[in-house]
Design a protein around this nucleic acid. Structure first.
Lengths: 224, 224, 224, 224
DNA sequence: TATGAATGAGATTTCATTCAT
DNA sequence: TATGAATGAAATCTCATTCAT
């Protein structure tokens, strides 16, 4: 018994006890965003999240009641973030064409700069929207960018700049598709075609390209 | 093979030991494609794959030497499949504009009809290309569609139908982005904007839309 | 401990959750010593260790984080034990020859009485010291018996009882070799030469024999 | 089906088919000696042995009928080898003291040069002689060295060179113990006391030391 | 004689969650 | 509010052996 035997099985590093519930919650949530984005729902481990926050699995369960609720909170958070960012975008004073270009650029950059968001959206789609369905908050997320697009397109149509049958949701979808692909498919596409993509690709050139594509398509139909 | 060869007696149906390695392998691979596509790498379970066939985990390990090699075989298989399908696409005799439309339609339909392929590609990207890197076969997959696009674009440029600076890989990327998005993001996008997507969306309309987008963009630049 | 302290009510016997981490850890460690000593590293099974206690594999992993760390803890424990036992050996007040005899006897008996220790040492050697290398604790184990031997030998040399070139580590090695062999090789040697060995052999006679061998060797060199 | 799919699950390296049963057996046995010596009974894998021989597990089972019989064959082989080597030792024409020195040196060197033998003996002892018991061949192995020792000791006693109560088996045991320890305990002892041992230690010095120990002990008892 | 195919048992480890305090 | 302890389920992989030819 004189021999010193280690008693505590867990991590024995002295951990600070914050005693600040809100801060704890926020820290856990941030760690969870990173972990779920990086590893996906199944790949993410509660332990890894705990390790990123100097707390324990039990703590996380205490705050979020389990892995899935935590994941939902993560989704809600990143959607709230993009909604907020979109809200800050002011295009009412720009000419329609310039406004579209601005919106495309904003969107393109947001994806490049927020890979976590993109990866989480993709993960949720890979999960067939399983979790999203259970969240009232997520089912009622509104994305200001679509209404914004609607107003810009209407202005452009009024001036004859844009084709008459342009639909804001279609336009948003095209912008999102072209912008996301660079991030979502960077590994396979980049590897197969030897093109650096995502944040490492030629961001400026490709962002401009997307704007061109959208604007060409939106432009008034040549008679015929 | 046309002549009737006597098969060994008990080979007809319910044998305890099938002894049909090729068929076994193929069955396992098919089951693995479905399982990995449905659940992702981590989510997929060797047991589930075994259950989809009439074999056991041990059998799968015997044939494929583990989960990751099996996953690689799956990736290689679906890439081989799309490469083969692309090879069968004949556009050399079409006018450039029609050829592009044909290629877009083919690609769009392939994604809609082969969700497994799309999901596997997405999954591999979510895994940051981790597995792909280890496969020589995958690092050297060539996608005939890009060369095909290159030839069509060159023909179009020679006739003045297409802009001079069009790049086949950019074009392929745009087509892929617009086509995949409908499949990859169907759950979140569809839910957020109340639009059915993927195979359940308005496939015809959207396929045409993608072709329009690409062709407008490819068309000769208006002077100025 | 002598005063009667009130224990918490349910603590007496059959609780579903013992909540006695120290005792659990100790019980697991003891079981692991027995299992690893009996079956070697590879032969030992975590299940068997669990069965020897009243816990589960998962519990063991919780406390020790895996099989190898557990094995290391076992090694560290038995080395700590022998070190402690060696420390209790008091030979400073004995004449050098008697002191050597005492040390030999202690060592010989320790091996006979602690087959687990001997078997674990042998197992680690069979594993080429693979695990030991990874343990800082083990790399810095000091064995008091060698310093003790050094002091006794020096005293004997000063009196002319022992040869001048005697080296404590050589002496310890010879003692250990002769003592361990009886335990380590009891099965093959005993079987081949029909001699009961280990604890079943003629312990007294052989222990004396080892002391004789060592002392004859240590004794002053006959001139010439 | 145009795609090339690997069909054979096993190792596809072109393997030569020796068609030489005896040679096969010998090669497998040699590989098994190395594998069992290196990894112990449990640690050894039939696959690893197969890999060392360019055959398959099935082959080995075909020749040896299982892992344990193979292990027994290995033990029998290495004991046959040492017996044969011992038989070649000629000491009848040496003076008793020189003869003893010769025997010690031979034994010491044999252990240093045949670690596989030593490791197998140790492994069998760690297995508590479990396998040995089942082998008639092993239960009747005779070790010529003991009779040889007996004759030498008798000659030495007749001349008054050796003590009267010296027992050949005791002597052999001491020689074996001192010689084996250098090999069997080289990892723990060497690490704990910073002494290179086994073939890497100071073989010459230690071999001489063992001879000295034995001869001092065997020498005629000083009166008293 | 030789072998690819097939099998079932067992081993370790990870993990999310629950419990009692 | 916070947490160490405990648990049961599942997942992957290895392996010796057997079978049919």
């Amino acid at each position: 018994m004189a021999t010193s035997v280690q008693l505590s099985p867990g991590r024995s590093t002295a951990m600070r006890k914050p005693k600040a519930p809100e801060a704890n919650r926020a820290r856990i949530l941030a760690a969870a965003v990173a972990e779920f984005a990086s590893r996906g729902y199944d790949g993410a481990s509660m332990d890894a999240i705990a390790a990123r926050t100097n707390t324990t699995r039990a703590m996380i369960n205490y705050y979020f009641r389990g892995k899935e609720p935590l994941y939902l909170a993560v989704l809600e958070r990143v959607y709230a973030d993009i909604r907020e960012a979109e809200s800050g975008l002011d295009v009412e004073n720009l000419e329609p064409v310039e406004a579209i270009r601005r919106i495309v650029e904003f969107t393109y950059d947001y994806y490049v700069d927020h890979e976590d968001f993109v990866r989480l959206v993709v993960a949720e789609n890979q999960a067939k929207g399983r979790h999203m369905k259970r969240s009232h908050a997520l089912r009622t997320v509104n994305r200001p960018i679509v209404e914004m697009l609607g107003r810009v397109i209407a202005r452009g149509q009024a001036r004859g700049d844009f084709r008459a049958d342009a639909d804001p949701i279609d336009v948003h979808m095209a912008i999102a598709a072209l912008g996301m692909f660079n991030v979502t498919n960077q590994y396979t596409f980049g590897s197969l075609f030897q093109r650096p993509m995502g944040a490492k690709g030629d961001v400026d050139r490709r962002r401009a390209m997307v704007a061109d594509i959208i604007l060409q398509w939106l432009g008034p139909q040549p008679a015929g």
